[in-house]
Computed example of a mutant assay.
Amino acid sequence: MRIGRLPLDEQLAAVPAVLQTNPALVAVLRGARTLDLPGWWVAAGAVVQTIWNYVTGRDPQHGVRDYDLIYHDPSDLSWEAEDAVITTGREVFGDVPVEIRNEARVHLWYEKRFGVPCPPYDSAEDAIDSFPATTCSLGVRITASGGWKLYAPYGVADAFNLVVRPNPRQAPRHVYEAKVARWSSAWPELTVLPWP
């Protein structure tokens, strides 16, 4: 039976085993843990894309351009503070492309980049809730004791069922459509639902 059709608890239990098929993702998770960032998650694309690769029988890193490491630190919203974390991250992750972002400061640049205002996020989870596709609204971390934590506000069935569902909460339509165009070329099996 397909994982996306299992009971929710069994779907969630399958996620760590599926994600562990991607050694680069596991290395990023372990490295992220050493940075001790507040409220951190490895989120979005690389997480769901590893699931898509598992379901479609592709190499675990197929189509993965980078790994998003997000955290939420409202104590210092300066670019310099975020850049210091990015610089440290480069030392930790080496050649693995990891994009590190402090979600507490996204509202400072979001409108200029995407054309719509963004209220300040109150947590990294708040940011995940607003990702352009609910399917990609996933965050994962490995705890200090080695346990796996998953944040999936919209569940994981769509990821396992290769369904991309828009999330109009924050991102504009053109952001969603640009992402699904790239994803569809790498994973033609996806069922992409239209923007509402």
Score class of each variant (00 low, 15 high):
R2M: 13
R2K: 15
I3M: 12
I3E: 11
G4N: 09
R5H: 13
L6N: 09
L12S: 01
A14E: 02
A17W: 03
V18H: 07
L19W: 00
Q20D: 03
N22I: 10
P23K: 07
P23W: 02
A24F: 09
G31R: 02
T34Y: 01
D36T: 08
L37K: 08
G39C: 00
W41T: 05
V47I: 15
V48S: 15
Q49S: 10
V55E: 04
D59E: 15
D59C: 08
Q61V: 13
H62I: 08
H62K: 11
R65C: 01
D66S: 05
Y67H: 03
D68W: 06
I70L: 15
Y71W: 03
H72S: 02
P74F: 01
A84I: 05
F93G: 13
F93W: 12
V96K: 08
E99P: 03
I100W: 13
I100H: 13
I100M: 12
R101L: 14
R101S: 12
R101H: 14
N102E: 07
R105D: 01
L108H: 10
Y110K: 05
K112S: 13
R113S: 05
F114N: 10
G115I: 13
C118V: 02
P119R: 15
Y121K: 01
S123W: 09
S123M: 03
A124N: 14
D126N: 12
D126E: 13
D126P: 03
I128D: 05
D129K: 11
T134Q: 09
T135V: 10
G139Q: 06
G139S: 01
G139A: 06
V140Y: 05
R141Q: 14
R141V: 07
A144R: 09
G146V: 05
A152C: 07
P153W: 08
G155I: 00
V156N: 01
V156E: 04
V156W: 12
L162I: 12
V163A: 02
V164C: 01
V164F: 02
R165D: 00
P166W: 12
N167H: 01
N167S: 07
P168A: 14
A171H: 15
P172I: 10
A178Q: 15
K179P: 01
K179D: 09
S185A: 14
S185M: 13
A186N: 08
W187D: 00
P188N: 00
P188K: 04
P188V: 04
E189I: 03
T191Q: 13
W195M: 11
